[in-house]
């Protein structure tokens, strides 16, 4: 009881992230883990507890969160823009490397085809083999290798910075969204919502924003690279690109964008959940 009391007063004075907030997120996750374990281990023992159970099933939570995203598209859009731009930059940088490799390969293959054609006009079938063998051959001299590594490092730095900035952007947008909805949160608590439910609702919401935003970012990033190389080298380069690793880049982009959105939403979600209901209801925006 003592600790709850402490949390309350602290949240009243300073409703920002605190130690018991992190505990809350852990609790929100643990609740479901425990429930799963109970289901797996036979729910017979849970029977006397059921009467005092309060819960918010995932499908319902998902439905509520999705609805609030759709109804506040403007706010969600601001949060998503950060993710879209960050992930677009990320995919651009990563797929740029894949594309330039593809272009290199194409050029090498072309040179070898020409050489082979000069050597023997009757053996055009050698071309595809030469293409596959190309990466094994020493491609560039040492000097260009080192500038390439430097460029990679600089790009990685840029990517990390841009992701950080967009993470902060999401936190900010989610904080605004929480502040706007203090009354709603207070009402939900009056209706019997646990703090963990509020955290869950906000986290689901940000995951939805994260997935949609990263999907859009991936499409934009790839589109830009395609356009750049298509105009510079002609659209035939797309045939030489390693589509397998490009798909991997897309997946990485999706995962990074979503995780970023999720992490950035944790502090606002905690802030929302820790409001004592009376204070949440009193607040007016």
């Amino acid at each position: 009881m003592q600790s709850t009391r402490k949390c309350w007063s602290r949240a009243e004075l300073d409703p920002r992230l605190s130690a018991c907030g992190l505990r809350l997120v852990v609790k929100a996750v643990m609740m479901d883990v425990k429930k799963l374990a109970k289901v797996a281990g036979g729910g017979g023992q849970a029977a006397p507890q059921i009467q005092k159970q309060i819960n918010l099933p995932w499908p319902d939570a998902f439905r509520i969160s999705l609805r609030s995203v759709l109804l506040r598209l403007g706010r969600a859009g601001i949060a998503a823009t950060g993710i879209v731009l960050g992930v677009a930059f990320l995919t651009y940088v990563w797929s740029d490397r894949i594309f330039s490799d593809g272009v290199e390969k194409a050029r090498l293959a072309q040179e070898q085809t020409l050489a082979a054609a000069a050597e023997s006009v009757r053996k055009p079938a050698a071309a595809p083999e030469a293409e596959q063998g190309a990466p094994d051959q020493p491609v560039a001299p040492d000097a260009s290798q080192s500038t390439k590594a430097e460029k990679d490092a600089r790009q990685l730095w840029l990517v990390v910075m841009s992701l950080l900035v967009c993470g902060i952007g999401i936190t900010n947008a989610m904080l605004m969204s929480v502040t706007e909805r203090f009354q709603e949160i207070g009402t939900m608590k009056c209706l019997g919502a646990l703090d963990a439910f509020i955290v869950r609702l906000f986290l689901i919401e940000s995951v939805v924003i994260g997935v949609l935003g990263s999907a859009a970012g991936i499409i934009i990033g790839i589109l830009f690279v395609l356009l750049y190389y298509g105009i510079k080298e002609g659209f035939s380069v797309t045939a030489k690109v390693d589509w397998g690793s490009l798909v991997m880049v897309m997946l990485y982009g999706l995962v990074i964008g979503t995780v970023l959105a999720l992490l950035s939403a944790i502090p606002p979600a905690i802030r929302a959940a820790q409001m004592p209901p009376a204070a949440a209801l009193r607040s007016e925006i």
């Binding site: 309060i54 608590k189 919502a193 646990l194």
Partner: peptide
Amino acid sequence: SAHELAWQRC
């Protein structure tokens, strides 16, 4: 506890 309080409110 917080849980019982939520139950009571609900």
